[in-house]
């Protein structure tokens, strides 16, 4: 194994970098699309809030692998052909967006109505209330679960290897097939995921502990 390590490590490290890149892009999509979904969910129009509600429930009730297969193979059959990388980013981002929307919603709902009414009666405008009263408090509630979602996302990128998207697990499978040393290679891949995910989960817990004291 030691003599192969020099060959493997650069390839696995490259795969880990691609996983991190995939996760970051999907995370940004999730943060933005999640906000849109949350706003839709809170809309006064039944139709709009209904669509967002169905989307969120459907995503949360089905595995990300089934969603990826539908996007990559299903949509291609219907004429919308994407690369596996694009399908992975859209699938993972769209999946996390549903969870992020729920995180935002919990954040907004954590600010008590009384505060908003008080701010109103003091003469603040709607936008000022959002900026000065709701957002600062929402951030403290929202940050820890958002960091947790990043941990979930980095692990979910591994599933993208099943639609042959180029990332760490895909690299490990290629090497395992070539050298026929699956135990060593998948353990190494696991170690690399650990190095990617562990700092994030430490951050999540740190935020949780710190922000709880502040409240």
């Amino acid at each position: 194994m030691m003599k192969h390590l020099a060959d493997w490590l650069p390839l696995l490290a490259h795969g880990a970098l691609q996983s991190a890149k995939m996760m970051l892009i999907a995370y940004v999509i999730a943060l933005v699309f999640g906000a849109v979904l949350m706003l839709m969910r809170r809309s006064r129009f039944r139709l709009i809030s209904g669509i967002a509600g169905i989307y969120i429930t459907a995503i949360r009730g089905t595995p990300v692998l089934a969603q990826l297969f539908f996007i990559y193979f299903g949509l291609a059959e219907m004429g919308l052909v994407m690369s596996s990388w694009q399908a992975a980013i859209i699938g993972l981002g769209g999946n996390s967006a549903a969870y992020v929307a729920e995180i935002y919603r919990a954040g907004i709902e954590s600010v008590s109505r009384g505060q908003i009414e008080a701010a109103r009666s003091m003469g603040l405008r709607r936008f000022q209330i959002t900026r000065l009263v709701v957002l600062p408090q929402m951030v403290t509630v929202v940050l820890p679960p958002l960091a947790n979602q990043a941990v979930v996302l980095i692990k979910e990128t591994s599933v993208a290897s099943l639609i042959a998207a180029p990332e760490l697990m895909h690299e490990a499978r290629d090497l395992a097939a070539e050298f026929y040393m699956p135990l060593e290679l998948y353990l190494l891949a696991g170690l690399m995921y650990l190095m990617l995910a562990f700092p994030l989960s430490v951050l999540a817990r740190h935020l949780e502990a710190r922000l709880r004291i502040e409240r």
Binding site: K155, T157, S158, V159, M169, A172, Y180, L183, Y193, F198
Partner: peptide, 18 residues
């Protein structure tokens, strides 16, 4: 909790077989 479940499955199924 930090390693993807797919990686763990591959270690158990393909890795232990060797």
């Amino acid at each position: 909790r930090a390693v993807p479940v797919l990686t763990q499955l591959f270690i158990i199924y393909f890795g232990l077989a060797t």
